[in-house]
Design a protein around this nucleic acid. Structure first.
Length: 567
DNA sequence: CTTACCTTC
DNA sequence: TCTAGAAGGTAAG
């Protein structure tokens, strides 16, 4: 019924309870334990590699079922699930003396069975069974395999950067002491407050500005906004700001990873039911958030830290990353059928990058002159606008006035007329049925869609639009993961393994000799998802996958299509 | 604008 | 003094 298999932390649940239980008892050295809120029954101490028969298995997890019905309540414990979704709640409450007491295993098995049957009926009624059975349950084994795999980390390099950042912090600390004219604990906001406001009396130099006070006591705050306002008056605030930035990077991205390491590797835990949009989320560490950090070194030279380059493939293996280019924008083109937007993707065998193109148009510079930052800005602008950003927010991003920003929004939506039609249609539909649906049938109830309160209602409206696109992108990525997993599992030669998923990017570790072969099959498999017959998915735009390889995650170079190279 | 996680205050 | 939660920063689109 409920097994924790293959050394994975992922609980696994089956219908054929008795059989599995017996088999499990025979094959594993297991202890039966029932932990409330952590619904595992049997813990297998032995591990086994995931092989095709396992890849095929479907085990019914009520937590995932409940999450599909309403992604808003993410990780309820078993008892909560029973109370919320099972008809047999009375059974739970009345016949078992002491509701808080741990129930015996048999009782729980009966409850679990009933719960899963009720959930099944509900899923089928809501048209979510396919999604549950084929997508989410199929993904479960993929995630289990991914969690089982280790990502090697260059611990020495990590240690070196940690030390480097440490010295940088020491330097900044000394500078701060010099600027303050005294020793003090830089990390302490109390001591900083004493120095800034009682010793240096900086607040007297800017009485025209209002300095926010802490809520409880009427002290001056030392928060970032305050320091920003003070930075022209004295060197100290700026030093503190830089100190805090470097300190944060060090603790989250360097020491954070280090503390998650076991020996020489890390292995994130993936949460399948952690988001409302259907995306995955990862913890320990959040490999999704790693990025480069630039800061001034001792001399004028600039030191750059690449946390991703600490991640290295196993000996004889290479990282291969596959990225769905502009997925959400492509999906928006499909969903809205906007002719201008469709043209962007359909017409040119797109050599050009959409965001670079838009950046060059908006900034009036040739496309070859478009910098990475320009592209990034264009991307943020596009997504902000289509997801309903207000003029204030947009003016922040673009660094223009609110009036200019609202003009910008107008002209954008004027050019891509059907985008607005799509958002309106989505909101209407949500108002009518109380939920929105992604391209593969994932749904999100939005009870506040008809709220009286303007703020609450409009937020729900934006969430509705966002979900349809973001949730569809999540669907696509999940299908891709499953397809590739099955493909590799059923191949007699391929050994590639999935390391991580960063939303629209899949990171694989591939044997050196197989890189080309796998790259080709990966690309075509992912791009073929434009049409998924079984799910009735037929996108009006092609999907584009870009591949890159490298001997570290930090130094990936684009892998160009071998076919286009040969021409 | 949305979706996450993690640290600081 | 401690800690829960808001705020703010990061990522992704």
């Amino acid at each position: 019924m409920l097994l924790q298999i293959l050394g994975s932390k992922r609980p696994v649940i089956c219908f054929k309870a008795k059989e599995l239980l017996r088999t499990a008892m025979q094959h594993y050295r297991k202890e039966i334990n029932w932990k409330q809120g952590n619904i595992d029954l049997i813990t297998a101490n032995e591990t086994e590699t995931l092989s095709p028969p396992v890849a095929d298995c479907r085990v019914l997890d009520p937590r995932i079922a409940a999450w599909l019905l309403d992604p808003a309540d993410s990780a309820p414990c078993f008892q909560e699930l029973v109370v919320k979704h099972s008809k047999k709640t009375s059974w739970l409450k009345s016949e078992i003396p002491g509701a808080n007491k741990q129930l015996d295993v048999c009782t729980n098995l009966v409850l679990l069975d009933q719960l899963m049957m009720d959930l099944r009926a509900n899923l089928q009624m809501q048209g979510l069974w396919q999604l549950f059975y084929n997508m989410e349950l199929g993904l479960m084994t993929v995630l289990a395999a991914m969690e089982n795999h280790r990502i090697h980390v260059d611990k020495d390099a990590l240690k070196r950067t940690s030390d480097l950042l440490g010295t940088k912090l020491k330097q900044l600390e000394q500078e701060a002491h010099k600027a303050a004219g005294q020793q003090f604990l830089v990390t302490s906001s109390n001591q900083l407050r004493l120095v800034l406001f009682e010793k240096l009396r900086l607040q007297e130099l800017c009485e025209n500005k209002k300095l926010p006070k802490t809520v409880l006591k009427q002290h001056h705050s030392t928060s970032e906004v305050v320091l920003m306002q003070l930075q022209d008056l004295h060197p100290l605030p700026k030093i503190i700001l830089e100190y805090r930035q470097v300190h944060k990077i060090k603790s989250t991205y360097v020491d954070g990873i280090m503390s998650c390491m076991k020996k020489s590797y890390i292995s994130s835990t993936w949460n399948q039911t952690g988001t409302v949009s259907g995306r995955l989320s990862a913890k320990h560490p959040v490999i999704m958030h790693l990025r480069s950090l630039h800061f001034s070194g001792k001399e004028p030279e600039v030191v750059t830290i690449h946390p991703r380059s600490m991640f290295i493939p196993a000996e004889g293996w290479t990282f291969l990353a596959a990225d769905f280019s502009q997925v959400e924008l492509r999906l928006l083109a499909h969903l809205s059928s906007d002719p201008e937007l469709l043209k962007l993707f359909q017409e040119p065998e797109t050599t050009a990058d959409v965001f670079s193109m838009l950046a060059s148009q908006w900034k009036g510079i040739p496309e070859t002159e478009v910098k990475h930052a320009d592209r990034e800005q264009a991307k943020r602008v596009v997504y902000s606008v289509v997801y309903g950003a207000g003029k204030e927010r947009l003016s922040e991003i673009l660094g223009i006035t609110a009036d200019q920003a609202s003009q910008f929004v107008e002209s954008f939506l004027q050019k891509y007329k059907q985008v607005r039609a799509f958002t309106q249609k989505t909101i209407q539909q949500c108002q009518k049925q109380g939920y929105v649906v992604s391209i593969m049938g994932r749904r999100r109830p939005l009870p506040h869609i008809g709220a009286q309160d303007y703020t609450i209602r409009t937020q729900a409206e934006r969430q509705a639009v966002n979900f349809v696109v973001q949730g569809s992108a999540a669907d696509l990525c999940k299908i891709a993961m499953i397809k590739i997993f099955i493909l590799v599992a059923s191949s007699s030669t391929l050994t590639a393994r999935l390391i991580a998923q960063i939303h629209d990017e899949l990171l694989f570790e591939v044997e050196d000799s197989q890189v080309e072969e796998f790259a080709a099959v990966l690309k075509s498999t992912m791009e073929s998802l434009q049409h998924v017959e079984a799910l009735g998915v037929h996108l009006k735009v092609p999907l584009k996958v870009t591949l890159s390889t490298g001997k570290s995650w930090g130094s990936m170079t684009e892998l160009l299509d071998s076919r286009s190279c040969s021409h």
